[in-house]
Amino acid sequence: MTAVTERRRIAAPSTAQRIRNWILNPWGEPRGLVVITWIYVAISIVPVVVAIMFSFNAGRSVTAWQGFSLTRWYLDDPRSSVIGDPRLQHALLQSLKLAGLTMLIATPLGVMLALGLARWRGRLASASNFIMLFPLVTPELVMGVSLFLVFVNLFTFIPLGTTAQVMGHVTFSLSYVVVIVRGRLFSIGRQYEEAAADLGATPWETLRLVVLPLLLPAIFSSLMMVFAISIDDFVISAWLSCGSSCDTVPIRVYSSTRGAPLPSINALATVMVAMTLTAIGIAWVVHRYMTRGERRTGKQGGMTQAMGAFDL
């Protein structure tokens, strides 16, 4: 090649140009955005980490570090630890009870609704679909007030309390289940069912042997998701509460923030966060395991798509 002789003819960029280019660097990442992003990440996570840290404070302050104690505010303190304070212990049990029951009711109900709405055609079906979408955009306060009023004035045979709370939780989590399961249904398509029918499976066998196994990842995700959003819920639980014996963890945390909170509240909140994150973590791992091998053929944006519930 003649390139060797040619090379001398062309001036390489000068040092000044190089420095200018480094500062303006048209190919690099914009440094301002990098800073903003990491500041955001820090602000969103550091306070929570600090709050969790103070649940391990040896002293009674939530703002001044007085030494490390692993279990004082969780187990040891006889009067005000999560286990020692009957109100905190009861709130934890109530939250678990609500989340567990909600998960077991909302998931099957939502899976059936998703299947029905995805395949049922007609005016009634569109109307039902429309109703299903509403809880996703209705502010919790409006839902809380209306559920409160209906239990107090119309369904008077169900008193405010655990039953009413569970019914409220199922109502707002149902639509999330439908969105998750329907997303999966669309991505599966109908080819497998048609293949099953073609191979002689009855409709019932197709549902049981083809549709249900293919929906399992979505069903499992729904279970965990419902558990997580139920355990985090404050508004609906508060409006349908029967008083302090129906208090959940978020209600306890809420009412303590206005007083002089002890690290035991931080401990209680930490337990709640741990449960939510565990549920979501399990859901993620199991979902990945169950859908392994599908990803290469699937569409991109898995993580944001998994959060598809928010993509109204």
Partner: peptide, 23 residues
């Protein structure tokens, strides 16, 4: 085109080095 920055080397258009020129 200028969408990727060379690890090394030069891109010359009509005798002028444009390796560092943005697209």
């Amino acid at each position: 085109a200028g969408f990727e920055r060379p690890t090394s080397g030069q891109i010359v258009l009509d005798g002028a080095d444009m390796t560092e020129t943005p697209p």
